[in-house]
Simulated scan of single mutants.
Amino acid sequence: MKIDLSNRTAVVSGSTKGIGYAIARGLAGAGAAVVISGRKPDEVEAAMAKMTGEVGGADVRGVVADLGTADGCAKLVDAEPAPDILVNNVGFFGPSDVLETTDDEWRTILDVNFMSGVRLSRALVPGMVDRGWGRVIFLSSESAHNIPGEMVNYGVTKTAYLALSRGLAKRVAGSGVTINAILPGPTLSDALRDQLAEDPANAGKSPEQAGVDFVRANRPTSIIHRAAAVEEVANMAVYVASPQASATTGAALRVDGGVIEDII
């Protein structure tokens, strides 16, 4: 299978690092013009330079915007008003006792992890429908099924993405636009690498070995017995964004290493 995204433009939110960057790089490698976004100008510039070096002939643009705000989402839309592919990836996670999480903390994670996808989709999907072709991908998580007791707020945002993606797919039914969610399991993103490195128990371990130990301790139902690489998640996103995935829509697609016990 040869995936050709030439003459397509992809916007990937939160794409200076980790899974977002890997998805943007994969789309660029398939020929798409890619828009990298992030909150910090230096990180956006560094990601653009890195991708230009890694993908020969890549067409890469950057937008600096805080997508946890309505104004930031509007800034990205103003800069790139007509993409063919939208990947709603931006998000964050961290321990938060649900009995102590404040209203402001709830609003922050909902704005970043959920409302960014609502706002960008609301602004950009109508154009895709008018043009008769488009791909929208929401980065959910296995935590949408297995709500982490230590990160209930994060799990809630990822479950909400499943509902949003399925409902939005129904809203644009028959238009040529597909809407899907991807559910990664534990993945060696920059965020997880940093979290593992902060644990004294991982001193002297490679990130990969620390990831194996994390999965064994915290996701014992994993079938691959390790954390995924960001590229493994990106591979699914590139396929879902392709013309070959035209019959895949309204789906929750797992790249979770078998963590989720359900068979369907």
Score class of each variant (00 low, 15 high):
residue 35 V to L: 11
residue 35 V to I: 13
residue 35 V to W: 12
residue 36 I to Y: 03
residue 36 I to T: 06
residue 36 I to V: 14
residue 37 S to T: 15
residue 37 S to M: 14
residue 37 S to G: 07
residue 37 S to A: 09
residue 37 S to R: 02
residue 38 G to H: 01
residue 38 G to K: 13
residue 38 G to Q: 03
residue 38 G to V: 09
residue 38 G to A: 09
residue 38 G to Y: 04
residue 39 R to G: 00
residue 40 K to D: 11
residue 40 K to S: 15
residue 41 P to D: 09
residue 41 P to V: 00
residue 41 P to Q: 11
residue 41 P to Y: 10
residue 41 P to N: 03
residue 41 P to C: 06
residue 41 P to E: 08
residue 41 P to H: 06
residue 42 D to I: 11
residue 42 D to C: 02
residue 42 D to P: 10
residue 42 D to Y: 04
residue 42 D to A: 09
residue 42 D to G: 07
residue 43 E to Q: 15
residue 43 E to D: 15
residue 44 V to Q: 06
residue 44 V to T: 06
residue 44 V to G: 05
residue 45 E to S: 13
residue 45 E to A: 13
residue 45 E to C: 10
residue 45 E to H: 11
residue 45 E to P: 01
residue 46 A to S: 15
residue 46 A to I: 06
residue 46 A to F: 03
residue 46 A to N: 12
residue 47 A to C: 07
residue 47 A to F: 08
residue 47 A to W: 04
residue 47 A to P: 03
residue 48 M to D: 07
residue 48 M to G: 11
residue 48 M to N: 08
residue 48 M to T: 14
residue 49 A to I: 08
residue 49 A to C: 12
residue 49 A to N: 09
residue 49 A to F: 07
residue 50 K to S: 15
residue 50 K to G: 12
residue 50 K to T: 11
residue 50 K to L: 10
residue 50 K to H: 09
residue 51 M to N: 10
residue 51 M to D: 07
residue 51 M to A: 06
residue 52 T to V: 11
residue 52 T to D: 12
residue 52 T to F: 02
residue 52 T to Q: 13
residue 52 T to A: 14
residue 52 T to P: 03
residue 53 G to P: 10
residue 53 G to F: 01
residue 53 G to M: 01
residue 53 G to W: 04
residue 53 G to E: 11
residue 54 E to H: 13
residue 54 E to C: 08
residue 54 E to V: 01
residue 54 E to R: 06
residue 54 E to A: 15
residue 55 V to R: 08
residue 55 V to W: 04
residue 55 V to I: 15
residue 56 G to M: 08
residue 56 G to P: 12
residue 56 G to D: 09
residue 56 G to W: 02
residue 56 G to A: 14
residue 57 G to V: 07
residue 57 G to L: 00
residue 57 G to I: 00
residue 57 G to S: 00
residue 58 A to T: 07
residue 58 A to E: 10
residue 58 A to R: 04
residue 58 A to L: 03
residue 58 A to G: 00
residue 58 A to D: 07
residue 59 D to T: 14
residue 59 D to Q: 14
residue 59 D to F: 01
residue 60 V to A: 03
residue 60 V to I: 15
residue 60 V to G: 03
residue 61 R to V: 08
residue 61 R to A: 13
residue 61 R to D: 12
residue 61 R to C: 01
residue 62 G to S: 04
residue 62 G to M: 02
residue 62 G to W: 05
residue 62 G to K: 10
residue 63 V to P: 00
residue 64 V to D: 11
residue 64 V to F: 05
residue 65 A to G: 04
residue 65 A to C: 05
residue 66 D to T: 06
residue 66 D to H: 09
residue 66 D to C: 00
residue 67 L to Y: 08
residue 67 L to I: 15
residue 68 G to P: 10
residue 68 G to Y: 03
residue 68 G to T: 06
residue 68 G to L: 03
residue 68 G to F: 02
residue 68 G to W: 07
residue 68 G to I: 01
residue 69 T to D: 00
residue 69 T to Q: 12
residue 70 A to V: 11
residue 70 A to P: 04
residue 70 A to S: 13
residue 70 A to K: 13
residue 71 D to Q: 10
residue 71 D to T: 15
residue 71 D to A: 11
residue 71 D to L: 08
residue 72 G to M: 07
residue 72 G to T: 08
residue 72 G to H: 10
residue 72 G to V: 05
residue 72 G to C: 03
residue 73 C to S: 10
residue 73 C to A: 12
residue 73 C to K: 03
residue 73 C to M: 03
residue 73 C to Q: 07
residue 74 A to T: 14
residue 74 A to N: 15
residue 74 A to C: 07
